[in-house]
Design a protein around this nucleic acid. Sequence first.
DNA 1: GCATATATCGGAACAGTTCCTAATTAGTAA
DNA 2: TTACTAATTAGGAACTGTTCCGATATATGC
Lengths: 148, 148
Amino acid sequence: MHEDELDRRLEHFKEVCRHEGLKLTHQRMVIFEEVAKSRDHPDADTVFKSVRDKVPTVSLDTVYRTLWMLNAMGLITTVGPPREKVRFDGDVSPHHHFVCSRCGAVYDVHGPAFGPIQAPDEIEGIGQVESVRLELRGRCRRCASQIE
Amino acid sequence: MHEDELDRRLEHFKEVCRHEGLKLTHQRMVIFEEVAKSRDHPDADTVFKSVRDKVPTVSLDTVYRTLWMLNAMGLITTVGPPREKVRFDGDVSPHHHFVCSRCGAVYDVHGPAFGPIQAPDEIEGIGQVESVRLELRGRCRRCASQIE
DNA sequence: GCATATATCGGAACAGTTCCTAATTAGTAA
DNA sequence: TTACTAATTAGGAACTGTTCCGATATATGC
């Protein structure tokens, strides 16, 4: 990534914070920068260790809080569903899932609209695909109809 | 689900166990039946509680061991990536991920082959889709080239 | 039935994440 | 600059989901 791009993201981050009335603490900036410039999808502990090199007293809690905050603000994303326990499915036929982000309910989606998903050619250079998992997230009907 | 279908699955399960030299314990059958007949993607604790009604002394460990075994045998599947910690991604542009099931490395997949994924009409009746997550799993090049 | 490899139970251990509270700090206004 | 205040942090305890461990029990093959 270009130095410029990182600066641009940092500036955007500051802007969003100001706009949301969030304080621009040193910790937050270092944590954001760490994820923004990383290319290897680090876990929380990895971020924690990197940040600690620059801010020795930072706590793991702060790292977690900040990461989820950044995620909520759309400044970073996560790989895999956040904070959920494993669930099992007796149906092994090819299908996908809709997970309600509010109540956690899981709905099967068999709809043929997707068809059998095929990996793009790019994958060739990365590895051998063994399974494809498609997960839709959102608010289910029941939750959507309830007042917040 | 028809009673027949459940019986068929149970019979298939027994067959696979025999073929693999796995013992057909009462616990295993009850656990498998519980997941096979469920329609709501239960978590391990839910399965545990259901099974306990029929086998009061069953342990949570047995439930977990059995569920992962069933998963490994392809008799059930999981929702969401199993046994992994959350990882973060500073890239918020639309893209997907390839996760190596052996070393855990995550690779970005931007390939246009997928295009913007669209939810099937079936979704209309389920809820409002807020995000779509596509995850490819398999063995990455580096791992594939190593002797097991 | 007997032998034995396999599976189970129960509880302790573990890992990742979140909670709690006193102390600190960024932003704001005088 | 200084003082004020609400937001944020550090550190460690607590929590949750999952796995490990060792003694006991059991399914299967003979």
